[in-house]
Design a protein around this nucleic acid. Structure first.
Length: 598
DNA sequence: TTAGGGTTAG
């Protein structure tokens, strides 16, 4: 029994029985007509006859399709109505799948067509599916589709190659890209400008700039895009000189070329070169200006970044984001939030990267309520919470702001945990009184097979110090040197000094500082002074304080620490003497404040 | 077909 004749009719009959209006009658009438057309298509399923019969209802619905569920329904409907050899409709179906980023649905549809229908699928439609797979699916899916195309006896053309080659470029898959290059030569489309430009991009991305350049030199008249691609290849491989040489040789330059070169100088860390070129631009674009802002922000020069931003007229989400994360990265979370409130007044939609910067600023403020507000903000603007950076930012912010329960839930929901997320959660535990849990997490991380870096060792040694875990701390310090071959930095030594100091091993801590390579470090001496304060060791405390007064003569905190040490052992005379010295040297301490949240 | 920004320590 055919599906058209078998299933839908009882439904129509039921509808006829329930008819109450003339509009309902009209609907049933049109449904009957659709079934009749589908039925005749099944009776004579010639591709030509089917192709000439349009299916306005399905085609219209495909245009309106907004969900994958809707795609699945239309998929079923096309099969039920026997419209699978209607190529114009299949092209629309593939386009809808592409828009919803589910190309494999279209690919499997075509792959499942019976032999004679499959052979009739035009190359143009196959190329569309291939391009969609290359854009939205993993590389292996696009390569499998390409192989299938060859197996079905179709000859790929100049439109089949560029999209798959670009996918190889994105994945930096040298072997697959080379195989495609060879296939393009065999088929005879390797000289096509689009194929060659895609190959230049591919070799550039894989670090084979020489191969990219050789292909570029073979082009008789390169297009503007070919010029862009070869220059990008040089920029991304750190050869700004070669990029500049080509830029200077270009017959004509468009804004993309200028933007790219300015960004190239920024990427190479040559801010002066970037600024000079930016000033030479015939039309200074917001894009190039934003690259410069990002460069100055990364270099810690927020004053210049700010002045450029103030002069920038058409600011987009990139420029706002550069300022917010610039302030956050340089330790000015308050400024980051000031820029953010200005941003909110612009009516620009935030994106994933902007909220990442915002969360970084919030994590430095340790503000529980603000963190809750930001999570609401993220939900309100439909920010993708599965984005790896957003998720990492959420774990970090919640951990730092004291919402460890939420941070842990998010951490455990991560598809792949990395050193960043472990660091964030461990620091959260450290800051909020469960340093032993942080040390546990470190062991868990090692058992997951992740390699700790030097930042991670600073974190775990700090955790050991907070929890007073002497043996573990010493073990991790040795592990860092001997297993991971990381040369301990002054920060690592300072953590170990702090740990020894807390555990009362002040003499050992002092000897460690003396044995440390390099200049005396305020962190290490400060850690020793802290230990001396805790264990009331006045002799070593005075030595540490004296060193600190030499290194940081205007840091009031050191005077206060020594003063507190004297106070701990009731040497009030020394306390007042020290206070007098501070007044004499005009060293003042900003009064501390405590805020207790309800 | 080509170009821009991001997460972790002290």
């Amino acid at each position: 029994m055919t599906p058209a004749a078998g299933r839908p009719f009882p439904t129509v009959a039921t509808l006829l029985g329930r008819r109450r209006t003339t509009r309902c009658i009209a609907q049933v009438q049109s449904r009957l007509a659709r079934f009749a057309a589908a039925y005749s298509a099944l009776v004579s399923p010639s591709p030509i006859a089917a192709a000439s019969r349009p299916s306005p209802a399905v085609a219209t619905l495909l245009g309106r399709c907004r969900t994958t569920r809707c795609i699945a329904q239309l998929h079923a409907r096309i099969i039920r109505l026997g419209l699978h050899n209607h190529h114009a409709l299949l092209a629309r179906f593939a386009a809808a799948c592409d828009a919803l980023e589910c190309p494999s649905v279209a690919a499997s549809f075509i792959a499942a067509l019976p032999g004679s229908h499959a052979a009739a699928v035009p190359l143009r439609l196959r190329n569309a599916v291939l391009a969609s797979l290359a854009r939205h699916a993993p590389l292996h899916a696009a390569l499998a589709e390409f192989k299938l195309l060859l197996q079905r006896g179709a000859r790929p053309d100049s439109f089949s190659f560029p999209c798959v080659i670009r996918a190889c470029a994105r994945a930096s898959c040298l072997s697959a890209g080379r195989a495609l290059h060879a296939a393009a030569i065999r088929v005879g489309v390797h000289a096509d400008l689009f194929v060659r430009t895609a190959l230049i991009q591919f070799y550039g991305r894989c670090g084979a700039v020489g191969a990219a350049r050789a292909l570029f030199d073979q082009i008789h008249i390169p297009s503007e895009v070919s010029w862009t691609t070869i220059i990008v290849a040089y920029v991304n491989n750190g050869d700004i000189v070669a990029a500049r040489n080509l830029f200077d040789r270009m017959p004509q330059r468009n804004v993309v070329h200028w933007n790219m070169m300015v960004d190239g100088y920024v990427k190479c860390g040559d801010l002066e070169g970037a600024r000079k070129l930016f000033d030479e631009m015939p039309e200074r674009t917001a894009t190039a200006c934003t690259s410069l802002i990002g460069g100055y922000a990364k270099a810690g020069n927020m004053a210049v970044a700010r002045s450029l931003f103030d002069k920038l007229e058409d600011r987009d989400v990139f420029s706002w984001s550069a300022m917010i994360s610039g302030y956050a990265q340089n330790g000015y979370p308050g400024q980051a939030f000031r820029v953010f409130s200005e941003f909110q007044r612009q009516g620009i939609h935030p994106d994933e990267l902007l909220v990442v910067g915002l969360m970084s600023a919030c994590s430095q403020l340790n503000n529980f309520r603000l963190a809750l507000w930001i999570e609401d903000y993220i939900a309100k603007y439909s920010i993708d919470m599965n984005n790896v950076y957003v998720l990492a930012g959420l774990v970090n912010m919640n951990a730092k702001c004291g919402n460890l329960e939420r941070a842990t839930v998010l951490f455990e929901s991560m598809p792949a945990r990395d050193v960043f997320s472990y660091c964030s959660l461990m620091q959260g535990h450290c800051l909020h009184g469960s340093a032993d849990k942080a040390v546990e997490l470190f062991s868990q991380m090692l058992s997951e097979g992740l390699s700790p870096d030097n930042t991670m060792f600073t974190v775990v040694l700090t955790a050991c110090s907070h929890a007073g875990l002497l043996e573990e701390g010493k073990k991790f310090f040795d592990m860092m040197k001997n297993v991971y071959l990381i040369v301990p930095s002054v920060e690592h030594y300072a953590c170990l000094v702090s740990l020894l100091g807390r555990c009362g091993m002040l003499q050992e801590a002092y000897e460690l500082i003396i044995s440390m390579p390099g200049k005396p470090h305020p962190g290490a001496w400060g850690a020793l002074l802290g230990g001396c304060k805790l264990h009331c060791n006045i002799e070593l405390g005075k030595i540490a304080a004296k060193k600190l007064f030499e290194i940081e003569p205007y840091n009031a905190g050191n005077y206060v620490s020594l003063s507190n040490l004297y106070a701990n052992i009731d040497r009030w005379g020394d306390v007042s003497e020290l206070r007098a010295e501070m007044t004499e040297k005009r060293i003042t301490k900003i009064a501390g404040r405590t805020l207790v949240l309800q």
